[in-house]
């Protein structure tokens, strides 16, 4: 046995190193097991699957027939329809986020005092969340129905022309975004309400004594102190703006003439109507990267440099 000690020494050091790396995992793993398995199977594997699928070509039955390298990405990115879809998704975020933040902040400022009446109104603002996205989409479909919808009835009642909401471009976009904002504005309001209640009342009192009127108080104290809430609300609203597929799928089907042809809708169609798995996966990845880039940029722009304590 040549150099038994050296061999076993190396063995031990390797075992030590891996032991150090896995230190404490033993008992933790038992408790982490369910979450960890699900995380790997249904969050990480799909990403890996997407990366794998995006580099292949498939027959209509879903069998991989060839390796495509980055061709699928090239194809997706050079497709003018997908370019339009990406732009539309970004535009949805650009419109939805500021509108929802402004409305949510206004509602929070209006309802910040803890009175019974305010609590009731707050509950009503949040209520759309409890009905679920599908049902609220039904409600909007009815509300904006060209024939029996209340909105058209009101429009014609006050002498304005009726609008074919789902078959005209701008109204269809307005409908889809409006539904999204209407549904999510309650969350934004909650975030700002929490932020407002975290501001020590003495700080506002100090500012008032230091000579701040209502406007100065809002712009020099309240708004800056809500920075963290802003960050959180913006990220949440951005995420939500990438999740407005349901009304599109249910009502507009990407139309009219591509007005709601969001990237996520194209991904759905490419995968489940055209069965072009490779392209669909590469589109998924592109959109995901786009979303993460947008959120990273937002977090960077909205970085907060101060803390209370």
């Amino acid at each position: 046995m040549p150099h038994p000690t050296a061999a076993s020494g190396r063995d031990i050091s390797r075992r030590n190193r891996s032991a150090a790396f896995l230190e404490g995992w033993g008992p933790a793993l038992v408790f982490l097991c369910p979450a960890l398995v699900m995380l790997c199977l249904f969050k990480l594997w799909p990403i890996a699957e997407a990366i794998h699928t995006s580099t292949g070509t498939f027959d209509p039955g879903g069998q991989r027939i060839d390796t495509a390298g980055f061709d699928n990405f090239g194809f997706a990115l050079s497709d003018s329809r997908f370019q339009w879809g990406l732009w539309l998704s970004l535009a949805a975020a650009i419109v939805k986020v500021p509108v929802q933040l402004a409305l949510g902040l206004a509602a929070a400022l209006m309802l910040r005092a803890n009175t019974g009446g305010n609590a009731l109104v707050r509950a009503m603002v949040i209520s759309p969340m409890f009905f679920g996205l599908p049902v609220t989409t039904f409600v909007f479909a009815y509300l904006f129905d060209a024939n029996v919808g209340a909105i058209n009835a009101i429009l014609s009642g006050i002498g304005l022309p009726r609008v074919a909401w789902l078959s005209t471009e701008a109204p269809a976009q307005l409908l889809v975004l409006g539904l999204s904002v209407w549904r999510d504005v309650g969350v934004t309001m909650l975030v700002f309400l929490a932020g407002l209640s975290a501001i020590p009342p003495q700080i506002a009192a100090a500012a008032r004594l230091d000579g701040a009127g209502p406007l100065a108080l809002f712009f020099t104290i309240t708004l800056p102190l809500l920075a963290r809430s802003f960050q959180f609300a913006v990220v949440l609203a951005t995420l939500a703006s990438f999740q407005i597929l349901v009304p599109v799928l249910m009502l507009t089907k990407g139309g009219p003439t591509g007005a709601t042809d969001l990237a996520s809708f194209q991904i759905y169609e490419t995968a489940f109507s055209y069965f072009d798995l490779g392209t669909a996966s590469s589109m998924s990845l592109l959109l995901l990267v786009g979303l993460i880039v947008v959120i990273a940029l937002e977090l960077r722009w909205l970085a907060v440099k101060w803390t209370y304590e």
């Binding site: 150090a20 790396f21 896995l22 230190e23 404490g24 995992w25 008992p27 933790a28 408790f31 982490l32 979450a35 995380l39 969050k43 799909p46 990403i47 699957e49 997407a50 699928t53 995420l239 990438f242 999740q243 407005i244 597929l245 996520s264 991904i267 759905y268 490419t270 995968a271 489940f272 798995l277 669909a280 996966s281 998924s284 959109l287 995901l288 979303l291 993460i292 959120i295």
Partner: peptide, 27 residues
């Protein structure tokens, strides 16, 4: 529990929030 990579694991879990169903549906 104390184990190596605990914070990283927690962050990884939170990070999956940024993967909306709408986007990841096909895979």
């Amino acid at each position: 529990f104390r184990f190596r990579g605990r914070e990283a694991l927690f962050l990884l879990m939170l990070f999956t929030l940024f993967i909306p169903v709408d986007v990841i549906l096909p895979p």
